[in-house]
């Protein structure tokens, strides 16, 4: 059947198309002109240099989290705590930026990125150890640790790191210029972050596709019990996968504070980690699609700002679009599951 490979290829696009149709219906119901609306979405995301740079800038941390999540999903782990790992990463980067005064950029930036990755990995390790040692499911520990990360941020910006003129609860004072990632055209987009994200993408893709470790993760994800019987240490691989994911999310957090913002803010993430979970699901857990879907999400969210401003529809339209996408993905995802089951029963296919 020739149609099979083609369908497989375009499968992840299906929920996108369907949800666009859904949004179309919604626009018609509310009496907005869909042509204007989609034009607004497009222009909001790509309409000008600044818009494109904004879309790129929001894309990087989202993609970093999603790339990291590919590791944990492959290992069969629901790393919901990726949001908290991103926040911890931003705290780690901020710690370096605030405490190493007067250092040149080439000292500060690598240290900030390393601190961010270490902090994210540490947060993920807590989740992983709670699972392997404490039998606490990673979903629960992840949510708890995310809340803890938010509380920690709030404590830092209203306590020890509050700006000298007094805490407004908005954030720390802006970091020294040398601590910030170099940005393109005075925008929030840092080319360096794109390079880092690309490297991460290649490394994770190779790890998952071409290494024994990737195979071990897959075995773990499919059936941890038999993987264990076959000699895969489920604890070690799970912890490493989680920490690697946490490190990438932490890197995303560093990008957030060092190029999107210029300081640690009250809501540094605002749900980017949760969006990344949706990105991976929408990508049907396939590496190839992850960066594209993440970019699509970023474009839709950027575009929905313009959409809201042009049409004065409710501000949550972009959120509805992404929400519908996920619902539909879960529905459509069944096919993927079926295919996998079939594959397992007939390995020669």
């Amino acid at each position: 059947m020739k149609v099979v490979p083609l369908l497989k290829r375009i499968w992840p696009l299906m929920p996108v198309l369907a949800s666009l149709a859904f949004i179309l219906a919604l626009l018609l119901i509310f009496g907005a002109d869909p042509a204007t609306a989609f034009q607004a979405l497009w222009q909001g995301a790509f309409g000008s240099r600044d818009r494109l740079l904004g879309t790129l800038a929001f894309w990087i941390p989202l993609a970093l989290c999603a790339i990291g999540l590919m590791l944990t999903f492959t290992a069969g782990l629901w790393n919901i705590g990726v949001e908290g790992q991103l926040i911890l990463g931003s705290i780690g980067a901020s710690w370096v930026a605030l405490n190493l005064k007067g250092q040149p950029a080439w000292v500060l930036i690598p240290l900030e990125l390393l601190a961010a990755m270490a902090a994210g990995a540490l947060w993920a390790a807590l989740s992983a150890l709670l699972k392997t040692r404490g039998k606490v499911h990673e979903i629960f520990s992840g949510l708890a640790l995310t809340n803890l990360a938010i509380i920690l941020t709030n404590y830092l910006i209203s306590g020890p790191w509050q700006p000298p003129e007094g805490g407004s609860f908005r954030g720390t004072q802006p970091f020294q210029e040398a601590a910030l990632l170099p940005r393109l055209f005075d925008s929030r987009f840092s080319p360096l972050s794109l390079v880092l994200m690309s490297i991460a993408l290649v490394i994770v893709a190779v790890l998952l596709g071409n290494t024994t470790w990737g195979l071990k993760l897959k075995a773990l994800g499919r059936n941890s019990r038999s993987a264990f019987l076959l000699g895969v240490s489920s604890e070690r691989e799970a912890v490493i996968a989680m920490m690697a994911c946490g490190a990438l999310a932490g890197l995303g957090g560093a990008v957030r504070v060092l190029s999107w913002f210029d300081s640690l803010r009250q809501s540094i993430s605002g749900g980017i980690g949760f969006l990344a979970l949706l990105v991976v699901m929408l990508s049907a857990y396939r590496m190839f699609w992850v960066p594209f879907v993440a970019f699509f999400f970023s474009a839709v969210l950027q575009g929905s700002i313009t959409l809201q401003l042009r049409t004065q529809l409710h501000s949550s339209l972009g959120g509805i679009l992404t929400g519908v996408l996920v619902l539909l993905t879960l529905l459509f995802g069944d096919y993927n599951h079926l295919r996998r089951l079939r594959k397992e029963s007939r390995p020669d296919e």
Partner: peptide, 27 residues
């Protein structure tokens, strides 16, 4: 009137005042 609500990083992490203003001026 062009109204934009909920511009804060918790509700709209992707939005910035500059982006919103760009659009308002364009309109």
């Amino acid at each position: 009137l062009i109204l934009f609500e909920l511009l804060n990083p918790a509700d709209k992490p992707e939005a910035t005042l500059e982006g919103v203003v760009d659009d308002m001026v364009a309109q």
